[in-house]
Design a protein around this nucleic acid. Structure first.
Lengths: 250, 250
DNA sequence: CGTCTTCTTGATAGTATTCAATCCTCGTGG
DNA sequence: CCACGAGGATTGAATACTATCAAGAAGACG
């Protein structure tokens, strides 16, 4: 397993990660929310000295749990999943990331989770060993990363509530509302959502099996709450009903 | 409900929270791990200008989810639980805190969880609105709080794996190993652990019912892994067996 | 257009929950 | 000092929700 990881890093990167120039035409879209948000022009130019950008194709591993932390990442475009594995293969997706989210923060000698792309993605990355220098050069950035880490913490705690105390139906509703919110944040319609992640990934995120996920989608459709558009997209037909279900009101 | 909270804060604090002098005889015990760890004498004296200390009796609410954040807390002595509630009363304990842990970090207008003591506790607290001043006065403290927030994040992610993918038996083993580790960190024997939290609190932490928790303890006893010493304490008889169970190896 | 993968649906099984009763512990008061 | 009462913990029986096993349908892709 560590052998595979080593090989991957040795031979794989050139194939999987395409480097792009530091002039970031996409960054504008997420500038308000991303790590690089709220920086002055001067701060931003210093910031770019530490940053490199990569394009990663869909369904590609970025790093594995236990790998020595090489980079701190910020997602510009695309969707990424973070997950942990048990020795027998059981998997828990601990988060789906959207543009503006950061990942790869680590205190220890290794990353505490694996990261892989769901869709093709554009990432900013910062060498871990130069992070302290970056923080000194652009102090506001440290505060920003701190803020984003606290946001991650809050959503992890919210997810603990979902995993521990909600039913399958409520879990799916919660998941759909989360995707809807993140979609809306990007300026897209909240009730027409794209689900590029597989049923397996959704199941592993919610602590369910793919069969239960599938059955629950079918039920929600029957109840008129959603209207599937193939397996990869759906329309929310009753937003307030779905919200009530997600928040366990009704 | 908000009425109750308001009354609590108005009339309750004098009764529930006893203030103690800033000379902290207990702090020595957790100095290496706590928020105040690794500070120079000079930094520490500046630090104390922001800090107040309180003693809180057992089973007492410190703040509720949604309350405006007044303080950042650091636990010196005792055990605290953080939890979230659903409207219908379902509860998820999102963490048990031990000496050295911080809580009450919040970005929003309100705390994102409730906090209550399990045992009597000694707390350091820092007014939220002066936190930025404190960070400026003692820059190293901001890094320290950042570190502790990342630790919280890592343990939340670990708990997501437990909640989503482990069986009741594995969950209990994981919980016991966590308590054992935190006990050992305080210089106490790892295999003789104290469980001051109720079965309800343990169940709400692991996403189980009290009955399942109880039954699982009984089973683990039968299997010779643990040896209950009343409901509030137990000896771990087979540490490596319990560890294997917690990590889902065997 | 056929193959392969992913998703959906169906039948059955199992783990944890629910409902209910008993037991135990500990604090209280006689 | 011991009996009593109350709340929490344990145990038992039945149920329910979700998982597992198995098969079929729908897309995706060459």
């Amino acid at each position: 397993m560590p052998m595979d990881a080593a090989l991957d890093r040795q031979h794989g990167e050139a194939d999987r990660f395409a480097c792009v120039t530091p002039s970031c035409e996409h960054c504008e879209a997420v500038k308000d929310v991303a790590i690089c948000g709220r920086l002055s022009a001067d701060e931003f130019s210093r910031f770019t000295l530490y940053r490199s950008q990569v394009i990663v194709s869909a369904e590609t591993t970025i790093f594995r749990e236990g790998d020595p932390p090489e980079f701190l990442y910020s997602l510009t475009i695309g969707i990424i999943s973070l997950y942990k594995l048990l020795p027998d293969g059981r998997r828990q997706v601990i988060g789906f990331l959207f543009p503006g989210d950061v990942f790869g923060l680590s205190l220890d000698a290794g990353y505490s989770y694996s990261a892989e792309t769901v869709t093709q993605a554009v990432l900013c990355r910062f060498p871990s060993r130069r992070i302290e220098d970056l923080y000194e050069d652009v102090p506001r950035l440290e505060k920003r990363v701190f803020e984003l880490a606290l946001k991650s913490l809050a959503s992890a705690q919210e997810q603990m509530l979902t995993l521990g105390r909600k039913t399958a139906r409520e879990k799916i509703a919660t998941f759909l509302m989360m995707v809807s919110r993140r979609t809306q944040e990007r300026g897209l319609p909240a009730s027409l959502i794209h689900l590029p992640m597989s049923r397996t990934a959704i199941a592993d995120y919610l602590g369910l099996t793919i069969e239960t996920v599938s059955r629950t989608f079918t039920q929600l459709k029957k109840d008129g709450l959603i209207d599937p558009r193939g397996a990869q997209a759906l329309a929310i037909r009753d937003m307030s009903g779905l919200k009530a279900l997600a928040e366990c009101l009704g």
